[in-house]
């Protein structure tokens, strides 16, 4: 197959920052991140020398097999783990500063809602916690009820989470991350617990939101199709030790509806990703 624009893969150099995307824009920059876990007498290198630049407004997806350190990397960017060395800068701030000023929106794998709060109260949580910090983004916060209505949850505002379906709960969790207008959204396989149909709808919904807000997103998935449909840039990681294997730009037009999904360029990107994933499968260290 001829290599089209969409399948141009930049092999990631071992040490330098991925300069293809270092444009001088104040985005998120991850440089030289290492993280090792020690259990009893075993040392595992979870992530090794991760360098990545994310521009403002970009949708970046990390894909890779389980154990490749993608969750570890996300948790480091979220400030939930501290790296052994290396640094993360979120729009020029350190991670702890960014968290302090509520610039980080985190959507975990499960909806992680508070069962004693109604849907609206759950979405209000980020506005109540750490109240006196400067709010995220441009300082605009959404009205939780209006936001939920735009999420298609207007009918369940006063329900408790256990009364909702899994897909609806996940949408509430995403609304909770949007409500305080953070500068970056970190999403850790948010749709992995959902069935295929719900997942598809959730994906569309997220894309619409992202297109209207132009938020910077770092998204983790293990679904190739999901990665291609959502992303501007796909980062392929490989396990043991977890490192970036390839950075694949997705130059497909948006919105990527069904038409695009069945097109040749779409498949070309899919093939490129699968080839990268397979490469590391065939050559274990």
């Amino acid at each position: 197959m001829p290599e089209s624009d969409a399948t141009r893969v930049s092999r990631h150099p071992a040490k330098s920052t991925n300069d293809v995307y270092a444009t001088g824009d104040d985005g998120v920059s991850i440089s030289g991140i290492w993280k090792t876990f020690t259990t009893r007498n075993e040392r595992t290198v979870a992530v090794q020398d991760i360098n990545l630049q994310i521009r403002r407004g970009q949708f970046v997806t990390i894909i890779g097999p389980s154990g490749c350190g993608k969750s570890t990397l996300l948790r480091i960017v979220a400030g939930l783990l501290s790296p052994d060395c290396g640094s993360v800068s979120i729009f020029g701030e350190t991670v702890s500063h960014a968290a302090e000023s509520k610039h980080i929106g985190f959507v975990p794998q499960t909806p992680a809602l508070l069962p004693w709060r109604t849907v609206t109260e759950n979405v209000q949580l980020p506005l109540q916690v750490n109240k006196y910090s400067t709010s995220g983004g441009d300082g605009r916060q959404s009205d939780p009820r209006e936001l939920l209505e735009s999420f298609g949850l207007g009918a369940v505002l006063d329900r408790r989470p256990h009364e909702l379906s899994g897909g609806m709960q996940q949408r509430v969790a995403i609304a909770r991350a949007f409500v305080f207008d953070p500068m970056i959204l970190l999403m850790d396989e948010p749709f992995s617990a959902l069935d295929e149909f719900t997942r598809e709808a959730q994906r569309r919904g997220l894309l619409e939101l992202w297109q209207s807000n132009q938020k910077t997103v770092l998204f983790i998935t293990h679904s190739v199709a999901e990665a291609v449909e959502l992303s501007d840039v796909i980062v392929v990681m490989s396990p043991q030790p977890g490192r970036i294997q390839a950075v694949i730009p997705v130059d497909l037009p948006r919105p990527r509806g069904n038409l695009v999904e069945n097109s040749d360029p779409f498949h070309a990107v899919e093939v490129a990703i699968r080839r990268e994933l397979r490469r590391n499968w065939n050559q274990p260290e």
């Binding site: 948790r75 979220a78 400030g79 939930l80 968290a99 302090e100 509520k102 980080i104 929106g105 985190f106 975990p108 794998q109 499960t110 992680a112 809602l113 508070l114 949580l125 980020p126 109540q128 916690v129 750490n130 910090s133 909770r176 970190l186």
Partner: peptide
């Protein structure tokens, strides 16, 4: 749930907010 705690941590909630809420 540790994931709920993660959400509180990324919001930079104080220990008092974590306890109370």
């Amino acid at each position: 749930d540790p994931e709920v705690l993660d959400v509180f941590t990324t919001l930079h909630a104080s220990w008092w907010e974590v306890l109370w809420r």
